[in-house]
Design a protein around this nucleic acid. Structure first.
Lengths: 242, 242
DNA sequence: CTCCGATAATGAACCGGATTCAAAATTCGC
DNA sequence: GCGAATTTTGAATCCGGTTCATTATCGGAG
């Protein structure tokens, strides 16, 4: 009697359908114009059905954020598994980030909104829990890399704990994502440029901790080659053939 | 015939009253529970009167964010005027930030929300303009300090422009503010600690650019003394006597 | 002081979209 | 094929932001 299992699977599939539809609608019309009824309509269900899955519109948005965070985490996991020196793995984290945002261009805009008090509090406790859990491995993985680096002797934290260093890196990257995606603040700033900028800053921060750069920072070619190598070795299937 | 002038002044005062009331209500009940009608009520005006000032609820929130940004900018201006070495002035920027957030504890929460697409787009073009203008000097002041430092020969940007360096610093600080104020993400993280953390990271980033620390980073006392000195010399009137 | 047009304030009514829930439809095991 | 249980439906409800016709206030002219 696999009926129950099938139902559960179908239920989960539908939830996914709603989330995908919501993301498409946001991509097409902006978060401002997202209507719950349109999401349901796009999936050919009534609103009531959607509300069996999500406690509120905000709940749906947080669920969407979480779903994408899971994809993000998955990429980080691959980096953790990748056989390379700590500094290379750390660089691979930045590359993962770059590819992630390329694949989910609306993610940070939605996440920024979903994590505001107004939305966060309006989502269900369960979704909040899910979000926090989805993000936890990200921190752990990066902390692991920092620890490895310290153990290998190429990083001096100068009184900071690996956790604190990671918080700083995380804040820097998120800060840049937010800057780039914030409405109006940097309107004429190309998203492509921002990754170069982010990488340079991460590099600067790591240099400050005593980490030697992987390549001559002036040599743009070398950096490009490195990005290419990581893309091929770790994320080949996540990048559209160019 | 100063009638017109008086009216204008009264109009501006009332706008300020609405903004202050809104901030108090947010402090008391959270952004989630902010109602336009309650803001009007708190000021003993009808909603219609409030709507003579603000095109929408979002317009009010953005105006509030801008108002506080102006106070922030004002603090930065003082730093720019302060006679000190570039590195000291840069440190004073961090101190300004610390004091600012202490004085407006809800600011980043509100700003984070107000700068989301959903709110930003719903505000009037004029308010958006005002916000962008209020923030511009902040960047200019920090860039000025970086330039002075480069001119004094104690900073090597390593291929980055002063603007890029400032973007990185800004992103780092904002990223940490957001982390600290984001709901749930760092629930058990004391805001007080976060400044220490922020300062250390800024220090690390600047070290990466070749800037020598003002004091031995291990010596917490020395940092505290420096903060105290800047507080007294530059921001005496903005700090409640402790 | 009073009147009048202009200006500002009022708050009840309106409106749009999120949310609910009673009724209809479907599913499942027998 | 039947009836109970479950699921889906979408019209009705609710809520708070927004509007605007009405009322009150103001300032200057007579």
């Amino acid at each position: 009697m696999g009926t129950k299992e099938r139902k559960q699977r179908e239920f989960a599939e539908r939830e996914r359908q709603f989330l995908d539809a919501a993301y498409e609608l946001v991509s097409a019309n902006g978060l401002l114009n997202l209507q719950v009824s349109k999401v349901a309509e796009k999936c050919e269900y009534a609103v009531g059905t959607l509300y069996q899955h999500f406690a509120s519109k905000e709940d749906l948005l947080l669920a969407l954020t979480t779903l994408q965070s899971q994809a993000h985490t998955e990429m980080f996991r691959r980096v953790a598994q990748w056989e390379a020196r700590p500094r290379e793995r750390m660089f691979a984290i930045a590359v993962a980030d770059m590819i992630f945002v390329r694949n989910y261009p609306e993610h940070f805009r939605i996440a920024q909104y979903a994590l505001c008090e107004v939305v966060w509090r309006a989502a269900s406790a369960e979704r909040r829990q899910d979000f926090l859990e989805a993000g936890r491995p990200i921190g752990e993985i990066v902390i692991g890399i920092v620890r490895d680096a310290v153990a290998a002797g190429d990083l001096a934290l100068g009184g900071m704990s690996p956790e604190e260093v990671c918080t700083g890196l995380w804040a820097l990257c998120n800060g840049i994502h937010n800057l780039v995606h914030a409405e109006g603040v940097l309107e004429d700033f190309a998203v492509g440029d921002s990754y170069l900028l982010m990488c340079r800053h991460v590099q600067a921060m790591l240099n400050g901790l005593g980490w030697q750069p992987l390549a001559d920072p002036e040599d743009v070619r070398a950096t490009d080659r490195l990005i290419q190598r990581i893309t091929n070795e770790v994320f080949h299937d996540l990048c559209p053939a160019q």
